[in-house]
Amino acid sequence: MGGMAKNRFSQGDGPSQRQLRVGELIRRTLSDVLNRAEIHDPDLNRMSITVGEVRCSPDLKVATVYVMPLMGSVKVEEAIAALARNKAELRRHVGGQLTLKYAPDLRFRPDGTFDQLDETRRLFCDEKVRRDLDAADDDDEADDA
């Protein structure tokens, strides 16, 4: 596998601007497609699915799509199964929006951040915790989630 290109990304800089840009474009495209029920799958169209984040691999060949159905509409596993079933069609929509030679392969995963949101909000309201967070900002432990 092309060793050279990979190493550029191994310094822990996080994703490149290009990865972030493509990820955000894919996220918006999939959100629109799902909102407008453009995929011909009645099961999928019955679900309200939020696309929280899309992370692209450095070569932009794989996009990992973090999704969560709206509160209690369906189990996240069912939403992911429905998306995976329609992957080819979703990928076509994405490909139409991107100027890349190949549309990335889409992988769907549960978005864990949603479960934590309320808990996080509650913690943020706690002044003491906020002060602790500011103090801890310099170390990277928070990124281990």
Rank of each mutant, 00 (worst) to 15 (best):
M4G: 15
M4T: 12
A5P: 06
K6C: 10
N7L: 15
N7M: 14
F9G: 03
Q11Y: 08
D13L: 11
Q17R: 13
R18L: 08
R21F: 06
V22N: 01
I26K: 00
I26Q: 01
I26F: 04
R27S: 03
R28I: 02
T29H: 04
L30V: 03
D32A: 01
L34K: 02
L34G: 00
A37D: 10
R46N: 11
M47I: 09
V51S: 03
V54A: 05
C56H: 03
P58L: 07
K61F: 08
V62T: 13
A63Y: 01
A63F: 07
A63K: 05
V65S: 02
V65A: 03
M71V: 13
M71L: 15
G72L: 11
G72N: 13
S73M: 07
K75Q: 10
K75T: 08
E78M: 06
A79D: 03
I80E: 00
A82I: 04
A82N: 00
A82Q: 04
L83K: 01
A84L: 05
R85N: 11
K87Y: 02
A88G: 11
E89Q: 07
L90C: 10
Q97E: 11
P104G: 06
D105Q: 06
L106P: 01
L106Y: 01
R107V: 09
D111A: 11
D111F: 08
T113H: 06
T113F: 09
T113W: 10
F114Q: 03
Q116T: 08
E119V: 10
T120C: 04
R121L: 15
R122S: 11
L123I: 02
E127A: 15
K128W: 11
V129E: 10
R131E: 15
R131L: 12
R131A: 13
D132M: 12
A135N: 10
D137H: 14
D137F: 12
D138C: 12
D139A: 07
E141V: 12
D144Q: 15
A145M: 13
